[in-house]
Design a protein around this nucleic acid. Structure first.
Lengths: 226, 226
DNA sequence: CCAGTAATGTACGAACTAGTACGTTACTTA
DNA sequence: TAAGTAACGTACTAGTTCGTACATTACTGG
């Protein structure tokens, strides 16, 4: 590694991978900050050590660049989810752990949250058009599926729980806490991402999810109030 | 009413209030659809019966128009919340009713959800700058506050519940279900706003909130895992 | 009924913005 | 080492887009 076999081209002047990666990183920040329409191709170029020409050279255009940003952001997330190992825990502890992981992840990646919000404004058109993103599964829901099943078998969880539903419940609070912190803070004078209340919200969500899973449902699905 | 006292100027050719309202209505749709940067002043003007000149005449500019759109949207919401009357119900039923109202409201106002998402991308700068929106209180949290207090006194709810926290929990799911339906649908092949699953999600959220309020907390706030 | 003003329309411009034509240089490999 | 190509830079353009100067008309109070 340290041997100077290759004379360590201390500063390569031409490095396709690096240039591409730098554009992607800068674009991620700019799109997350200003939205798709608000982001400026010229500004993204200015923030890199290269020029606008290279954006078109590597990505083709603004739209494809945005798709590439989304693909990279989602890939990173899914990779982290894949490393998750909670199978050795009991169902309640495993659920708690999964909640905490989602909570921590969303908190640590506000740019990702913003990109997802922006993509929703565009009705997910880039995700739908992206083969790469369509192929991407979701390790989180697979893990959750197994946790819930074992919890049900052990008689700890009630029958109606569905993995994707529970994932939606967990995600919604973790996502909202970050995505809507500005309007919520402005209107209710409470900073949902205040570090001092972090543990409080983390525990609250885990409590709520576990309370839901372990309490018998109060209603009955399909019930009609005629 | 029907008498022709005023000869019913069947079509007034000049009507400030109407022109202003029409611009606001069209702008709401356009901003919600395309975001702040994506919306076009010229297009908004074209969709009204008047011209771009009037947008600047009545609102001053694109930025102020967006603020006016937000103000109108929030005002409408707050008015609806104010009509809410659940004080005669027992705490659990009242909570359930409040959840259902939020759920129904968010579902019925996707444009509002999109505007709030967009405003969060802009870090709530328009809300913060708007006197009108700063003064706007929140009837929903006031009502919730009273429900929770009576539930606590009756020994039904545990001690840690806070009105704004519970409001955040309720809002997050109702909001996420609408705001993120596109990415969620694309990635998990599940339409959260499918009419067929509406009752299911509505009941699920109410069950979860009530389960949380009535179950003792599993952790302890302030607990340190050293 | 007439003068003043609120309301409205037209036409235009300056700045911006995505994208490209064309030229150049560093690196590789035959 | 020479030639080919991948990587990169400059300068420009066509089309937008917000905003406004200027002109005009409908309505109303005196």
């Amino acid at each position: 590694m340290s041997s100077a076999q290759k004379p360590a081209p201390a500063e390569r002047q031409r490095d396709a991978a690096r240039t591409r990666a730098e554009i992607l990183a800068v674009a991620t920040g700019e799109f997350a900050r200003d939205g798709y329409a608000g982001a400026r191709v010229d500004k993204i170029a200015d923030l890199t050590r290269t020029t606008k020409r290279m954006i078109y050279y590597y990505f083709g255009g603004k739209e494809q660049l945005f798709t590439a940003v989304l693909e990279a952001a989602y890939s990173e997330i899914r990779q982290l989810e894949g490393d998750l190992d909670v199978e050795h825990l009991d169902p309640v502890a495993a659920t708690r752990r999964l909640v905490e992981l989602t909570f921590d992840h969303h908190e640590a990646h506000p740019d990702f949250i913003r990109l997802v919000s922006i993509e929703n404004i565009h009705e997910a058109e880039h995700i739908i058009a992206s083969e790469k993103l369509s192929r991407l599964g979701s390790p989180a829901t697979d893990v959750l599926q197994r946790i819930l099943e074992s919890g049900r078998k052990a008689g700890l969880f009630h029958a109606e729980v569905d993995a994707i539903d529970v994932h939606a419940m967990i995600s919604s609070f973790c996502f909202f806490r970050v995505s809507n912190r500005h309007t919520f803070g402005a209107l209710f004078a409470r900073d949902l991402v205040d570090p001092d209340s972090r543990d409080h919200y983390r525990n609250m969500l885990a409590d709520m999810i576990c309370a839901y899973l372990t309490s018998p449902p109060l209603h009955r699905d399909g019930e009609e109030l005629s």
